[in-house]
Write a protein that binds this DNA or RNA. Sequence first.
DNA 1: ATGTATGCAAAACATTTGCACCTGG
DNA 2: CCAGGTGCAAATGTTTTGCATACAT
Lengths: 146, 146
Amino acid sequence: MSLGAKDLKKVGLKVTLPRMKILNLLAAQADSHLSAEDVYKCLLESGEEIGLATVYRVLTQFEAAGLVKRHHFEGPQSVFELDEGTHHDHLVCANCGEIVEFYDEIIEERQRAISRELGFELQEHSMILYAECRRPNCPKRSTGNS
Amino acid sequence: MSLGAKDLKKVGLKVTLPRMKILNLLAAQADSHLSAEDVYKCLLESGEEIGLATVYRVLTQFEAAGLVKRHHFEGPQSVFELDEGTHHDHLVCANCGEIVEFYDEIIEERQRAISRELGFELQEHSMILYAECRRPNCPKRSTGNS
DNA sequence: ATGTATGCAAAACATTTGCACCTGG
DNA sequence: CCAGGTGCAAATGTTTTGCATACAT
């Protein structure tokens, strides 16, 4: 079910057409990890009008508002995904770019413990595993969407 | 002890002045994580002549040759460190940018196990912890060098 | 010599910003 | 109506590339 205007109001953002379009796209592709350019192109192809600068601005605002998470996988662009509130890390297939999400409490706990031992208090972390799938039918290379 | 010409030959790279300068700088600042721009400025300030494009080219070659590791911490630039062969991950201080290196076998093992469980074979990973130091004397924000 | 490396300037990208116009409440 | 949002184009910051020159072997 796509997010609505309430979600924007909830975080103090005016409900505008571009913001709704982007929010809906992210919700529709909830399992994808899209770059700003991806979002822009997707919307254009869907016949929607939008400016690339707006996409960047809106995604940045969404990130600040906690609506989306930004990731830096390999490559020069950031990718975004809706922040459903459930933390997870990512495994990226070195063959096809498929992205698998996972969560491991043992690692999370060790990260906190290590930070403590070093005299720090953990705030965030970024962890990405690059791995090869063993399936022979692994597609050759997608844009990084699921 | 700074690396020498043998290290370049070993990986099949011609021994040139720019390459030696960069290699020596990285060895001298072995505890730092320098961007290409950092390397460029450092050398200029040391009175060495070099072009920024060369720094980028050489660092990329060094990475391909396994002499250096490239990291993507927050911010737009890549940073580089000499690859001493001992894998480690990084904790970045959210206050001052100090970088602490660490290694945890429990996490390493879990990463391999998780990959296996998901049907993949782990090749590499990137893990960065962002944390606040508890020391009151934490400097305010350096360039990201140790 | 001669193939490769370098330096400079220009290009290529991803992203940000200035500004006039449009829009939501 | 009016603050804030949008679109475009221009600016920015990082990294790459084309090409003539310089260098290592």
